[in-house]
Write a protein that binds this DNA or RNA. Structure first.
Lengths: 337, 337
DNA sequence: TTGTATGCGTTATCAA
DNA sequence: TTGATAACGCATACAA
């Protein structure tokens, strides 16, 4: 079914059908009715091959906003962005990235405003705050669809979330814990930050599942590592001083490198560690045998998929509604890095 | 850079440039030279948005040949095919699948011949035989590019291999073995079939890496399971009778379900098992706790990527040369199935 | 040996 | 309120 065929069926011209399809008005109500009915009946959808040609002329820009500075985990997500964009040069698509350090809401709003007037779609790692949600709704009102990546945000009417299931990621770490300990351990945990929903959900998934499958693992101690190596180093050191019987460590967020340094400094390389994300510093510690296994969330794929979905919406000229693309939680050990 | 621009630069018409690009002849040598030089200089590549429109008229067919019957692992690969094809309906691409049981070379040649006259590209899980390689070379000569999927074949001049690194998959299983045994075990192995290169490479990767990292793991016994549950059942039973001290099992190929049944029948559910691929029967045994972990090769993604690459070649109208798309070896436990 | 005209499906512009 | 026409980039039949 093409516009031409619809036009012929209705006895009108392509132009008229186009005006109906793109809601440009200036069409007699009866004609519009007829066209809409035949479209519904014949199941017309825009042909993306045809769209591709005209999209090119618009030179659409996909905007991206990330809290990525100082966190090497996001290097892969950004690489995924570029991988996708490089496939789309022939469609005239370009990327406009804005990054920031930390999780300041005002700053993120500022970055969005900086690009919102010249973008066709937005990909964002949102801070979970009502003002951000409101901004995303506002953009949608202006016809700019948003894809959340890596973290999701509630009540934002974003079109699609691309990221991992953090709760399941926690449970997966618990399953690994059982495998490497055999169900007996004195465990201490370094947690992340409260302002990131993902960290909370991971911890919840880990603790509840581990309780269920390993009643003999003792939760000895717990401190926050603030999502960075420095705090994680200090937290680990304090806990090991308080509780020398600790033989297993779990870290919920970034900062595993700090944890490992503490373990090395205290001469406790017998301790088994489970962490998240195979960033370079973590990989080094896995090769050294300190971190036994990590759970990963396919950041490269997250970035790639987010851009592709933005592009698909631009091309098909339809907005997704509350979709979710959930990455599998991948387990990595030194051998399959 | 478009054909039009090239034509203008050379002071000729689009038609002439087209004749050069598509090697149709009937062009004065000097003109051809000029055009080829400017094309090289300006870095012209066909615009895929423009190609998309004309490709549609050709209604290209991608052919697929698989030794998949009776092996549920391939269900996911085929699903991946369909996922990709469903994204390509607007380009007029269709799929023509032929499947067979077992690994008979004559049969596979027959299937290829069945479809070779009406396909634009071939996706195949090749039997590693010189006659198959010769056939693939012949197709390439006819302008039909081949993508090998899941298994590769030497000296075939296939354009691209999409599949896993079996050697690394073996090493990954060895790494898992260390994690769950702590480096002490009496191990028995059920191998696959000799005619599949992947099975040999996996075994090699597993044994050599395990020897290196776990000198205290004893290789107690070994039998072939013939890539199916029935043989694996019998092989496991025989080995456990011969060597009751076995406490760990590793199976290289399909048939883990048979191995698990043997272990259950003999009342030896204390035994730890590592296997490959999360097919439904394997998943069931993981949930039951018998199989501790499996190494997977992303069959869904393999199928999807193979078709997309075939499509990309059709669209860009260029043949890849000896590319490799290697899937990561994924570790799965009950928690991240 | 070369150029011109037409079409693929969508969209924007202009004329009616 | 509507229809005709040109344009995007590529491909090809046909005319010169």
């Amino acid at each position: 079914m093409t516009i031409k065929e619809i036009a012929q069926l209705c006895g009108v011209s392509r132009g008229t059908v186009d005006r109906v399809l793109n809601k440009r008005g200036r069409v007699k109500p009866e004609t519009e009715d007829l066209i809409l009915r035949t479209i519904a009946q014949m199941g017309y959808t825009k042909n993306i091959a045809g769209r591709a040609l005209t999209v090119k002329r618009d030179e659409p820009v996909i905007g991206a906003v990330l809290c990525s500075e100082g966190n090497s985990f996001f290097d892969d997500i950004i690489q995924g962005f570029h991988n996708a964009i490089s496939e789309l040069v022939d469609y005239g698509i370009t990327l406009s990235i804005r990054t920031m350090r930390g999780h300041n809401v005002d700053k993120q709003l500022e970055l969005i405003d900086e690009i919102s007037d010249h973008i066709t779609a937005l990909v964002i790692q949102p801070i979970n705050d009502p003002r951000i949600a409101a901004k995303i709704r506002e953009l949608r009102h202006q016809g700019i669809p948003t894809i959340t990546v890596n973290n999701d945000i509630e009540n934002s009417s974003r079109c699609c979330y691309v990221g991992s299931d953090y709760q399941a990621g926690g449970a997966t770490a618990a399953g690994l814990m059982r495998l490497i300990t055999g169900g007996e351990a004195n465990l201490a945990i370094v947690t992340g930050v409260d302002s990131l929903m993902g960290h909370i959900q991971r911890l919840e998934g880990f603790v509840s599942h581990l309780r269920a499958i390993c009643p003999n693992i003792k939760f000895v101690d717990c401190e926050s590592g603030q999502d960075n190596p420095e705090h994680s180093y200090e937290a680990t050191k304090r806990m090991l001083h308080r509780h020398p019987e600790i033989d297993t460590l779990f870290i919920v967020a970034a900062g595993s490198h700090g944890m490992c340094r503490a373990v090395i400094d205290l001469g406790r390389e017998d301790i088994r560690i489970i962490a998240y994300d195979d960033v370079p510093s973590t990989q080094a510690m896995m090769r050294r045998g300190l971190i036994k296994a990590v759970v990963c969330q396919q950041p490269l794929e997250q970035g790639y998929r987010a851009i592709r979905i933005a592009f698909d919406m631009i091309l098909s000229d339809t907005l997704l509604n509350n979709e979710q693309i959930i990455m599998e939680n991948q387990i990595k050990i030194a051998e399959n890095l």
